[in-house]
Design a protein around this nucleic acid. Structure first.
Lengths: 142, 142
DNA sequence: TTATCATATAGTAAAAATTACTATTTGATA
DNA sequence: TATCAAATAGTAATTTTTACTATATGATAA
């Protein structure tokens, strides 16, 4: 669970208001190993803030992304998921239960493409996604 | 450009009808380095087959995916793109013009996660996406 | 603590993307 | 060439995302 203090500082820096909605959305994303969809964010917060608007969730997540505080990625099925920006990491997705874990592996962070293969591209960053079966689904024989 | 004959054979095997729509969609995907969105597929074919239904494009692409002949992936912006299944490869995406190139690099195909980091997962496959600027956009100073 | 003001929110509506449904058409087979 | 199941187009329904606006609220400074 990431501290909210960093988030608060960032909002102050940028002159953004610290609303309960933003704090709640940040809290969901910052909880360890969360990769919720828009709707999951909305539904979870709605329990405590029934007046929350889905609109606000959309706009807040977009804001977070613009600020570089969060990012979205999409699974093979085309489901868009969100996560907070933390240290560089990659993902591993269970093909059965759809659970997504983070992988922190510095060797993956260092991947390079040899010049003849990258066709003149200047590479800024990269993501790796592994697909497989988690320990529970593996036992159930899929 | 991939041969259509493989596709035709695959359809016969599975008892699928060889319709002009399917052939056209396959042709678009099979053209070298194409990663079109649903709408791009639809618009391009509509020029020659004005009666084509968007519905058919959706269903055909889903079919191709179920058959393991195509796959979808999504860019950071959440745009879903489709491609034909060819030899294992990865992607490099220009952050400015959104062009997507394929990378064939066997060392990337061999990526592994060390057991302590994969948390019990059994890994089946993986994808790597690089982000950067292509040679043209690089020259334009982004 | 309170007044002020720009920003954020909720609520509604509009637009875009995706899926469902069905009558008709069409490819494959004999 | 006839038959039949499967595929298609067209339409409608549903879902997802975005736009718009009046109201509410966080931040600031008096």
């Amino acid at each position: 669970m990431e501290k909210a203090s960093g988030f608060i500082a960032k909002c102050r820096e940028r002159g953004l208001k610290l609303t309960p909605q933003r704090l709640a959305i940040h809290k969901i994303l910052a909880a360890k190993a969360q990769h919720p969809t828009i709707n999951e964010v909305y539904e979870r917060i709605k329990k405590d803030y029934p007046s929350l608007s889905l609109n606000t969730v959309y706009k807040t997540l977009q804001l977070f992304i613009e600020l570089g505080m969060a990012s979205q990625f999409t699974t093979k099925e085309g489901v868009i998921r969100y996560e907070i920006k933390i240290q560089p990491h990659h993902h591993i997705l269970c093909l059965k239960c759809r659970r997504i874990n983070d992988i922190f592996d510095s060797s993956l962070d260092k991947l390079k493409v040899s010049p003849p293969l990258k066709g003149g591209f200047e590479i800024i960053r990269h993501d790796v996604i592994f697909y497989g079966y988690c320990s529970e689904c593996k036992q159930e024989g899929r």
